[in-house]
Structures are given as structure tokens and as C-alpha cells.
């Protein structure tokens, strides 16, 4: 992981920072205060309140009371663990696909696009300008039964293979796990491409020449020079894709079926439709805990200064 250590030291240097003037020790705190108070009150405290709510019992009419009701967690987990498994499974599949699609794209932008680089980058970001809900709806059209895409996939027997893997059913793609994974991959691909591009673009071209001078063929150069130096981008791209994908519920709701519900779908339903707030809170708390564990493991490796 020397590549991580490398970027950790390259920026965010504390050396240029100045000591606030003696009289003005409060200056940085005055600058921080309004924004940080906003985050504490509307981000940090809600997380804790949510922990409290998850331990309440009661109903809509009687009102809720705090009662250390741990059973909510056991019930929630027992009832909804398939959704959690699906969440992390679909998100992992989408992340791998994003990496497979996004790495060559980022590589092409960084090393092959030449003076068209700016145009390529705009093309990566531009689709974002249309509301993501509207774009996700478009996948309903693209993957529609008897549509061009599905016909071709059927002719190529692609759907037979995915059906064997349990990802599709019959000759449909819509309302199957494959459609959800495809939607997730599409929605979060830029989050993979941009950090990958940022770390590839930083690589000194002379390193490639040096590798060539030392008789490394292109494949070895990639394996021993380019890829290790792009690892920070791989790690942050993976996190930036996996985390939002595991919490998403729009793709599962629109492109999937009731059998493809993810954790986000359950939280949404419990909170907004069933109005069972303790269960919603417990589920969201479990999801948060899983994510925090993963992120903190990452922070310990890469340091926060680099990420913020």
C-alpha cells in the first residue's frame, strides 16, 4: 500500500498553515462554527437520535416510548437480512462492473485522448445534468421486453447465461436483478471514473519511458508502474461507488421487482408507508454501522486529509 502513503504525503501539507495571530486565536473557530454547528445539529445528532428511536416501542396512536427494546434489531435483521445481502451483493457487483468499465475509460481519457481530453471529461459529466430519476426511468424503455436491447441479448443467448446465474428469468431483463445491477452500474459509473482519472492523470509520463528503457513491455509497465500508482483512485472510486449503491432504492424500485428489494427499499417503506419508525431507524442504523466500519478501515489506511 505504498501508493496510498505516497498520495497521503503529497498534498494537504500542514507546513504552509499559519498559526492564528495571538489575539485572534478564535478566528479559525469563528470561521468553522456556523457550518460545523449545522453539521452537528442536522447530521451528527440525527444519527444518535436514530439510535434512540430504534430502541423505542409503541404505536402511532399511543406514541412511542424509549424502552431499550433491542428486540427490534433482532426482528429487523431476521426479517430483512435478504434485503441486506442483496444490497451488498448488488452494490458489489455494480462496483466491479464500474471498475471494469471505468478503468479503461479513465485510462483512455488520461493517456489516449490527447487534446480531446476536455471533451471526453465533459461527456463523462454531462449526462449528470439531466435529473437522475429521469435518466433512470429511461432504462425502463431501453430494457423493455421485446425492445432492441433485449432482443439482441436473447439472440446472443446472453439471457440464457444470466438466467443460469439466477440474474434473469426467461427472456426478460426488466424486473430482474440484472436490470437493477445494470442501473446501479450506470448511475454510479462517473463516481468511479473521476477518481480513477485523477490518479492516472497525476502519473509522470517519464515513468513510462523509464520502464520502456528498462525493457519492460507495455503489459509489464502497466502491471508494475501504472496500476500500482493508480491504486488510490481505485480505492476511492470503489468506496464512492459501493457506498451510495448499497443505499440506493430507486433502481431496485423501478427496474427490479418485489423480489429484488434492497435495504434502502425496506427503510423507505417502513419510514414513509408503514410508519414503523423504530424498525426504520434500526434498519438504517445497521446500514450506517456497516458502512462506518468499512469507511473507518479505509480512513486508517489513507488518512482523512486526502479525502476531504
Amino acid at each position: 500500500m505504498s501508493a496510498l502513503a505516497h498520495t497521503g504525503g503529497s498534498s494537504g501539507g500542514g507546513d504552509d498553515l499559519k498559526e492564528p495571530p495571538k489575539r485572534g486565536r478564535w478566528v479559525p473557530y469563528a470561521l468553522l462554527a456556523p457550518g460545523m454547528i449545522w453539521l452537528v445539529v442536522f447530521f451528527l445528532i440525527p444519527m444518535l437520535v436514530q439510535g434512540g428511536t430504534s430502541l423505542q416501542t409503541g404505536g402511532l396512536e399511543k406514541g412511542y416510548e424509549f424502552s431499550w427494546h433491542w428486540a427490534t434489531y433482532a426482528d429487523a435483521f431476521e426479517q430483512y437480512y435478504p434485503q441486506f445481502l442483496r444490497s451488498f451483493g448488488y452494490a458489489a457487483a455494480a462496483t466491479v462492473l464500474c471498475l471494469v468499465i471505468g478503468y479503461p475509460l479513465a485510462y483512455a481519457i488520461a493517456f489516449k485522448a490527447g487534446r480531446w481530453r476536455g471533451v471526453w471529461l465533459v461527456l463523462v459529466i454531462a449526462p449528470f445534468f439531466t435529473s437522475f430519476l429521469v435518466r433512470t426511468l429511461a432504462w425502463k424503455t431501453i430494457l423493455a421486453d421485446n425492445g432492441v436491447v433485449v432482443d439482441v441479448l436473447n439472440k446472443l443467448h446472453f439471457t440464457d447465461v444470466t438466467a443460469l446465474l439466477g440474474l434473469t428469468e426467461g427472456d426478460r431483463v426488466l424486473a430482474t436483478p440484472l436490470a437493477v445491477i445494470c442501473g446501479l452500474t450506470y448511475n454510479f459509473l462517473p463516481f468511479m471514473v473521476l477518481p480513477l482519472y485523477a490518479s492516472l492523470e497525476r502519473i509522470d509520463g517519464r515513468l513510462h519511458e523509464a520502464a520502456g528503457d528498462l525493457y519492460a513491455d507495455p503489459r509489464t509497465t502497466f502491471r508494475k508502474v501504472t496500476f500500482p500508482l493508480s491504486l488510490p483512485g481505485v480505492v476511492s472510486g470503489t468506496l464512492l461507488t459501493f457506498i451510495p449503491a448499497s443505499g440506493d432504492y430507486v433502481n431496485a424500485a423501478w427496474l427490479g421487482s418485489p423480489d429484488t428489494g434492497m435495504a434502502g427499499n425496506v427503510i423507505q417503506t417502513q419510514f414513509l408507508r408503514v410508519l414503523d419508525y423504530p424498525t426504520a431507524a434500526a434498519l438504517s442504523f445497521i446500514l450506517m454501522l456497516a458502512i462506518v466500519l468499512m469507511v473507518s478501515a479505509y480512513i486508517r489506511k489513507a488518512g482523512t486529509e486526502e479525502l476531504v
Binding site: F43, P46, M47, V49, Q50, P244, G264, I267, A280, I291
Partner: peptide, 15 residues
């Protein structure tokens, strides 16, 4: 930036 939106939305809503 690293929290799934659904967690932030549900917890703020709970508050």
C-alpha cells in the same frame, strides 16, 4: 459524503 443518502434522510427525518 460517505454516508448512503437513505441513512442521512431517514435519520434527519427521525429527528
Amino acid at each position: 459524503m460517505s454516508m448512503p443518502e437513505v441513512v442521512m434522510g431517514a435519520s434527519l427525518g427521525t429527528l
